[in-house]
Structures are given as C-alpha cells and as structure tokens.
Design a protein around this nucleic acid. Structure first.
Length: 417
RNA sequence: GGAGGGAUGCCUGAGUGGUUAAAAGGGACGGACUGUAAAUCCGUUGGCACUGCCUACGUUGGUUCAAAUCCAACUCCCUCCA
C-alpha cells in the first residue's frame, strides 16, 4: 500500500478502522480530489442501534468531518428480507409497522452524530424500501439476474456457512445480497454515491454491489470495510450484563452507557479510544501507556467522551459524577436509576426479593432470592442475609430512600412517593 | 414423490422406561482476590405462595403404577434418490 494522501483515509487507517478495500489507491485519489459520497446500510431489526454499530456510525461522522457526504441507508426494504450474514437460522419476519417504528427510533441516534441537511456535505438518510418495494419482478430478474452467478453466490460465506452447518436457507434470504448490491447501484444513480462502507462481514455483499455497478452501468464503485470488533477476551462488542448496549437513551440510560465504557477491559482501552472518541492520537498514546490502576483514568476519559457524543455533555458529566460518588466515595448518589414506589405499599412491607425484581436487578423473584443467598445483595450498602427479608419504612436510609445493590456494580434507588 | 437421519434447558451436547429440573462444557450472574480491568479459584444458573408445588426434553394423542426415554399421527430440519 502506498502512502495515503487523503485526510479521510489517513485518519481511517491510523485510528484502526481499516480492514479491506477494493482499490485503496484509487479511492484515496478520489478522496483527495473532491467530495465523495459514501453510505452504510443499517438493518431495522430493533428500535435502537447498539454499541456494535457504533463503529460504523463513527466512520460516517469521520467521513463528514473530512468534508465528504455520508448517506445513512435505512434497510426498510431489505429488513423485510433479512440478512443471513452471520446468522445460524432465519430471522423471524418483521412486519412493516414494526420496521417503521424501528426506523424512527434509529433515526434519533444519527441526529446526534451527524449533521443532516441539503448542503454538499450534509448527511442524508434514505430508505431502500423507497425503491425496493416497487420492483417489478420479471423486469428486475431480466435486468440484474444475468449478472449474478449462482455458483459464485453459493461460495459466499453468508451462504456457504449456512449450507455447511446444514441449516436451511430460504430463497427469500438468498436474495438479500442481490438487493444489497442493487441498493448500491441505485444510490450511485440517485446520489452519485460511489463508496459503500461496512463491517468486514459485509465484504461479500459490498463487492457484489461494486461489481453489479460495473457490469450494468460501467460505474466505478468502491468498497471499504472495517474490522469486526470483539473485546480483548473475544466477546462480541455491545453486550453486557443487562443485555445490549443500546444507543438510545430510552433503551439504556446515560449512566449505564457511561458504565459500559468505564468497564472496558485494560487491553481494549487504546483501541476503543481510537475508534470511539475524537481524542487526538498523541493524547491517546499517552493514555494507553498508563500503568495498572492509573489506566482507570483513561477509562473515565473514554466513558466521558463516548457518553458526551451519544447523550450530550450534561448527561455525561452527570453520569460521571454519579459514578464518582457511588464507587469512589461509596455514597448514595442522586443520579442512580430510581424506582418510585407508593409509600402505602412499602408501609405494608415488601419482600426484598420482589423489590430487586421490580427494580430490574433480577429477572425473577427466584433469581433475586438466589442473589441474596449468594451474598450479592445489599440494602443500603449492608449485605442482606435473610432471603425472605421484608422491607418496610424502617429500612429507609437517612435521606428517605432505599439503596439496593446487586453485586458491586449495579445499584438502584427506591423512592417512596 | 421415495428412503434414511434428526428436533433436549441461553448455546453446544449427553441421556434410550423409574435414583432426571435432566451429565459435561460454554456463556451469564454472584463471591474471593484486585484497580468498577484481566487471569485464577469458589458458588449459582426453569418458575412460584420454596423443606412443598407447578411447568419443561418439536406438537398432539396413546401404552404404563411410572415416559425426554416405548407407540401413533403431525410439524419442521438435514442427507440421498426421482
């Protein structure tokens, strides 16, 4: 690989986003010469994206900062088909109404990371249902079918793995890669989009689009992928005790989001700082060299920066302060997640296990009881010994609340009203 | 259309009439040690009104004192043949 000239690709490489490119020199040239329009597709399978998609979001943000135009492609159409990539079995079919709802939720995230508008480098968001919904089947087959070889399609990982594992794959899913390829061509025609970005698992799909564009219209398109992110211990990015690390605040509080980043493994701190923050490289180099416990400072900076971007400065500061009081001072902090409960109910007495369950610290009463039995449950920072303990107004702390803790990290306030 | 194989808890996977809420591993959660890290060790891992009861081994029905285990039908998956 020759030296890169474009700002974007330099940053892209140095921060660790680069995995593969169809033609990096030509792409570099394009970036250096003018505005490049690039897109990433997102599935609408949930109401919010989670941390697993954050790298792709950051890439679009970087792209825009470097003076190029990002397109967020919502897979309103392709979600109806379902991407088989990395899937052991077919996804359940999602209805149009759910897809719409999911799209609305996902949009909110992008507004925090990108600037949308009509300007030359303003981001736009488009929905592939706009062109996929009205495809004429025979026409489509005749126009695009001849450019896809079944032999080749069977050799793609998304298909091959499924076949090897002896899992069934429907014709519906088999078509996904064709539609994604078609998306790229359509975006080129509509918006002069010449680059598709994505995770390395999307490579096959992306290459298909590049080739389809060349064969049908002689377009010169590019594909650029980023590594699939796992933590140092091999876990998939974006999962934690409570489930997925959602980016929308109504799905995961800013405090929990901050905690997620604060709990990053040592070995990942440098990588995460590069990928998920905009802290300058020399500063990151300094931070990741910190030794032992000092590295915790770097984790806080990481958590601050990430939370700021997703939830705003104020929310990030509040989350950091809550964490500081809770973990460093051992106090009961204002900003902890709080459950309100009618005073009368508490007066009558509530089993501790029930309260843990209602606060979401345990999935069921049994689980809560096991937590208490295992010595992991605390009431106002004191271990609960009796799994049948009943809480009442007598258990309120001096500030009139109850603090419940499950393990060392998960805390909840119970506020009588 | 025909022949054969299969479906077990969050996942992988053992179990082929009672001692099975179901081996083992993984994951997850909790504890100890730490630095809100990793590694390691220990414990827990279907639900509930919890020394008991209920639900569970693809679905439905049957045999039996007793079924994840035997039988029948059905559903879905896989392989081979046409």
């Amino acid at each position: 690989m020759t030296d890169l000239k474009s700002d974007f690709l330099q940053v892209f490489t140095e921060r660790g986003y680069l995995h593969q490119c169809t033609d990096i020199d030509a792409l570099d040239k394009a970036f250096a010469e003018g505005i490049v329009t690039a897109y990433i597709g997102f599935d609408c399978t949930a109401k919010s994206l989670h941390a697993g998609s954050l790298m792709q979001i950051m890439i679009l943000r970087r792209l825009q900062q470097a003076g190029h135009k990002p397109i967020v492609l919502m897979g309103g159409g392709t979600t109806k088909v379902g991407d088989p990539t990395g899937r052991d079995e077919s996804r359940p079919l999602i209805t149009d109404a759910v897809i719409q709802e999911n799209m609305d939720g996902i949009k909110k995230v992008f507004e925090k990371f990108l600037t949308f508008g009509d300007g030359p480098t303003d981001a736009i968001m488009v929905n592939n249902a706009d062109w996929l919904d009205d495809i004429k089947y025979i026409q489509f087959l005749r126009d695009y079918g001849p450019h896809f070889s079944i032999n080749r399609m069977l050799s793609f990982d998304s298909v091959k793995l499924r076949l090897e594992r002896e899992e069934s794959m429907t014709f519906l899913e088999f078509n996904y890669m064709i539609l994604q390829a078609y998306d790229f061509v359509e975006l080129k025609k509509k918006y002069n989009c010449t680059l598709q970005l994505g995770g390395s698992d999307q490579w096959g799909n992306i290459v298909n689009g590049v080739e389809l564009g060349r064969r049908t219209n002689g377009f010169s398109l590019f594909g650029l992928t980023s590594p699939l992110l796992t933590t140092a211990s091999g876990a998939k990015m974006g999962k934690t005790a409570g489930g997925a690390v959602w980016l929308n605040e109504d799905m995961l509080s800013a405090y929990d989001y901050w905690q997620f980043w604060r709990n990053t493994e040592d070995a990942d701190v440098g990588k995460f700082l590069r990928l998920f923050t905009e802290i300058p490289m020399d500063e990151i180099a300094r931070l990741e060299k910190l030794d032992g416990a000092e590295l915790n400072e770097a984790k806080k900076i990481l958590a601050d920066a990430c939370t700021e971007m997703a939830h705003g400065k104020a929310a990030a500061a509040a989350a950091a302060e809550t964490a500081r009081q809770t973990f460093e001072m051992g106090q009961t902090a204002e900003g902890l997640p709080t459950l309100e409960i009618p005073k009368a109910e508490l007066e009558a007495g509530i089993p501790a296990a029930t309260l843990f369950q209602r606060a979401g610290l345990a999935a069921s009463n049994s689980e809560a009881r096991k937590l208490i039995k295992g010595g992991g449950a605390k009431l106002n920072d004191t271990k609960i010994d009796d799994e049948k303990a009943v809480l009442s107004l007598n258990d309120l702390a001096d500030d009139g609340r109850i603090k419940l803790s499950a393990g060392k990290k998960r805390h909840y306030l119970i506020q009588p009203v």
